[in-house]
Simulated scan of single mutants.
Amino acid sequence: MNKYETRKTIANTTFLETFFDETKEGKKKLSLRAKRWISVISLHLLFFLSFKIDIQVLEGTLNGSRLLGFHLIDVFTTIEVFLATHHLPINMIIGTVTIVLVYLLIGGRTYCSWVCPYGIISEVGEKLHNMLVKKKIIKERAFDNRIRHIFWAIFLVLAFTSGYLVFELINVVGILSRFIAYGWSVALCFVLAVFLVEVFFSRRAWCKYLCPIGTTYGYLGTVSALRV
C-alpha cells in the first residue's frame, strides 16, 4: 500500500494525532510535523530569551538578526531595502549572503516549514477550515497560486517607488517575530484578520497566494542542493 494513503494528515485525522507516527513495531514516534513545530518554537524561544534575559544567542527578529554575533538578514528584506534606499550596508550584505548560502544548501522551502512562526498558526487555521468545509458551513475556495509572483513584484515596485518598506506594514511573519521577541503590538490585529480569512474564506491564503518571503525562498529552492 502506498504510504501516503495511510499517512496522518490534517485532513484525515485529529490535529494532535498528526504529531505522532507509528513504527513498524507499533511504537509511537514524533512525526515530521512535531519536529517542525519544535524547530520553530525553539528558534523563537531563543529570540525571546536573547532579548528578555540578554543571553545574546539569537538577537533580533526574522527580518534581521545576529546569531552569536554573526549577522543574518532576510533575503526579501534586503531586496526591499536596496530598492527603497539604493544602498546596502556591508553588514546587511554579509548577512544576506550568509542566509542565501544556508538555504542553497538546505532548501529554500525549509524556511516556510522549519522557521516561519506563522506556519504554525496557518496549520491550525487549515484544520479549522477543513472542519467547516466538511460540515458544509463554508465552501472551499482556491485560486491560482501563481498570483504570488505578481504580489512579489508589486511589493518590490512599491518599495522602489515610495522609498519605504511597504510590505513590512502587513508582513505577518515580521509582526509575529517582533511580538515574540519584544512584546505586544497593535499590528497583531492584522495577523488575526489574516488568520480569520484563512479559516472562513481560503485555506492557507497568506502562504499560498500573498507571502513574498516564502516566494523568495521558493526561488532559492529551485536551485538548492536539497528540495523540501
Rank of each mutant, 00 (worst) to 15 (best):
Gly108Cys: 04
Trp114Phe: 08
His86Lys: 15
Leu105Val: 15
Leu104Phe: 04
Leu104Pro: 01
Gly108Ile: 01
His87Tyr: 15
Arg109Cys: 12
Thr85Asp: 10
Leu105Gly: 11
Leu83Met: 12
Val97Thr: 13
Val81Gln: 07
Ala84Val: 02
Val100Lys: 06
Glu80Ser: 04
Tyr103Ala: 02
Asp74Cys: 10
Arg109Pro: 10
Phe82Trp: 13
Gly119Gln: 12
Ile93Pro: 00
Ser113Cys: 13
Leu72Val: 15
Thr85His: 13
Cys116Lys: 00
His86Gly: 10
Leu68Tyr: 12
Leu105Phe: 14
Asn91Lys: 08
Leu72Lys: 03
Thr110Gly: 07
Arg109Asn: 14
Pro89Tyr: 09
His86Thr: 15
Val102Asp: 00
Ile90Trp: 13
Phe70Gln: 09
Ile79Cys: 06
Gly119Arg: 10
Cys116Gly: 03
Ile120Ser: 03
Cys112Thr: 09
Thr85Ile: 14
Trp114Tyr: 13
Val81Asp: 06
Tyr111Leu: 11
Ile99Ser: 04
Thr78Ala: 14
Ile93Ser: 02
Ile120Asn: 03
Glu80His: 05
Gly119Trp: 09
Pro117Ala: 05
Thr98Val: 11
Phe70Cys: 08
Glu80Thr: 05
Trp114His: 13
Ala84Glu: 00
Thr96Asn: 04
Thr110Ala: 11
Ser113His: 15
Val115Met: 15
His71Asn: 14
Thr78Met: 14
Leu72Asp: 04
Met92Val: 09
Val102Ala: 07
Ile106Gln: 05
Tyr118Leu: 07
Cys116Trp: 00
Thr85Pro: 07
Asn91Tyr: 09
Phe82Ile: 07
Ile94Ala: 12
Val81Asn: 07
Cys112Ala: 07
Ile99Gly: 00
Val81Pro: 01
Phe76Gly: 00
Ile99Asn: 01
Val102Cys: 07
Ile93Trp: 02
Thr78Asp: 10
Pro89Ser: 12
Gly95Cys: 07
Leu101Gln: 10
Ala84His: 01
Ile93Val: 12
Leu83Asp: 01
Val102Leu: 10
Trp114Gly: 02
Leu88Asn: 06
Phe76Thr: 00
Leu105Glu: 05
His87Gln: 09
Cys112Arg: 00
